[in-house]
Amino acid sequence: MPQQTEWEAKAAGLLKAELKRKGVTYAGLVERLSAIGIEEKEVNVANKLSRGKFSAAFMLACLSVIGVGSLHLD
């Protein structure tokens, strides 16, 4: 299995940190994504975040549904 790139790890870490900061579980994220028409399974979300392999559009949708209005990338 290929190792995560630095950027994949950063993207996954950032999204996981925001989920934790907002107190949203993967199950809660799946429910919120469903409410805006994005159908995902909890296991698929967990796999995407553990691999760091997801689109920018998926990340933006996730951040939006959990109420993140701004990010600090440092």
Rank of each mutant, 00 (worst) to 15 (best):
M1A: 14
M1Y: 06
P2W: 09
P2D: 14
P2C: 10
Q4H: 01
Q4G: 00
Q4D: 00
Q4F: 00
Q4E: 02
T5P: 08
E6A: 10
E6T: 10
W7D: 15
W7S: 15
E8A: 14
A9Q: 11
A9L: 06
A9M: 03
A9H: 05
K10Y: 13
K10S: 12
A11R: 07
A11P: 00
A12E: 12
G13E: 10
G13P: 11
L14N: 02
L14F: 01
L15H: 04
K16W: 05
K16A: 14
K16V: 11
A17C: 04
L19W: 03
L19A: 04
L19K: 04
K20M: 01
K20E: 12
K20Y: 01
K20S: 09
R21H: 13
K22F: 03
K22T: 04
T25C: 01
T25Y: 02
Y26C: 04
Y26I: 08
A27W: 00
L29S: 05
V30K: 13
V30F: 05
V30T: 13
V30D: 06
V30S: 07
V30L: 06
E31W: 02
R32A: 10
R32H: 05
R32L: 10
L33T: 04
L33N: 04
L33C: 04
A35V: 07
I36H: 05
G37W: 04
G37E: 01
G37V: 01
G37M: 00
I38T: 08
I38W: 06
E40R: 11
E40V: 06
K41I: 05
K41D: 12
K41T: 14
K41F: 09
E42A: 02
E42R: 13
V43D: 00
V43C: 00
V43L: 00
N44A: 09
N44Y: 01
V45Y: 01
V45T: 04
V45E: 02
V45W: 02
A46I: 14
A46H: 09
A46M: 12
A46N: 12
N47H: 09
N47P: 02
K48H: 10
K48N: 09
K48S: 09
L49I: 05
L49D: 00
S50R: 09
S50H: 03
R51Y: 13
R51V: 12
G52K: 05
F54K: 06
S55P: 09
S55C: 09
A56H: 01
A56P: 01
A56M: 04
A57H: 12
F58G: 06
F58C: 07
F58Y: 15
F58H: 09
M59Y: 04
M59A: 15
M59G: 15
M59H: 04
L60M: 15
L60E: 11
A61H: 05
A61I: 00
A61T: 00
C62D: 06
L63R: 05
L63Q: 07
L63C: 06
L63S: 07
V65D: 09
V65Q: 08
V65Y: 05
I66H: 10
I66N: 13
G67D: 12
G67H: 10
V68A: 03
V68P: 10
G69C: 07
S70Y: 10
S70D: 07
S70I: 10
H72T: 14
H72Y: 08
L73M: 12
L73K: 07
L73C: 07
D74Q: 15
D74Y: 10
D74S: 15
